[in-house]
């Protein structure tokens, strides 16, 4: 259970850092495009801190996840294309993982239509929050991962 909790929380942190990184890049592009004048030198600025945090966290998380993988026979390449929060050591864990994945899938069917509706109002606050689509997409993944983790814990401790 510890493996699933640690990996789910790590995935959520990774999604947040990815959203912040692309958010900073988008803000940089948005400001450059809106303030660029033909007679001025081209200057592009962005906050690099989220990118540095993402790279550092991504590398350390990958090393830790690979070393603590439940199936030690799995090669690096096979492991790298799997979801690290999956734990299917025996038949009961396989059933729990299937149940938790189903719950996460259902969460998409709720969160995605709500966010689609929120995009109707995006033109009204686009200037104030140009990075909204990035955070909206990240939130669907964060919610689904959180639902997966909670369902897994509840089923495992039954």
């Amino acid at each position: 259970m510890k493996h699933v909790v640690v990996q789910s929380i790590s995935s959520i942190v990774l999604y947040i850092l990815t959203a912040l990184s692309f958010g900073s890049l988008t803000t940089g592009i948005y400001q450059t495009v809106n303030h660029y004048h033909r007679d001025e030198a081209f200057i592009f600025q962005m906050n690099a801190l989220p990118w540095i945090a993402l790279i550092l966290f991504g590398i350390s998380w990958s090393i830790y996840s690979y070393k603590t993988r439940p199936n030690k026979n799995l090669s690096f390449w096979k492991w790298s294309v799997q979801m690290t929060e999956f734990s299917e050591v025996d038949e009961r864990e396989q059933i729990i993982t299937a149940k938790a994945t189903k719950a996460a899938y259902v969460s998409f069917s709720i969160s995605v239509p709500i966010l689609m509706g929120s995009f109707m109002f995006y033109p009204l606050f686009e200037d104030a929050l140009p990075t909204y689509p990035i955070y909206a997409l990240a939130s669907t993944l964060i919610i689904a991962t959180f639902v997966y983790m909670v369902t897994w814990i509840r089923a495992y401790t039954r």
Binding site: M1, D90, E91, R92, R158
Partner: peptide, 22 residues
């Protein structure tokens, strides 16, 4: 039997129905 201890605990509690193989 090739499962985790937690599976045996759940089985004994009656909260888990094992597969035919198990």
């Amino acid at each position: 039997v090739g499962v985790t201890r937690q599976t045996i605990i759940s089985l004994e509690k009656g909260s888990y129905t094992p597969s035919l193989m198990l």
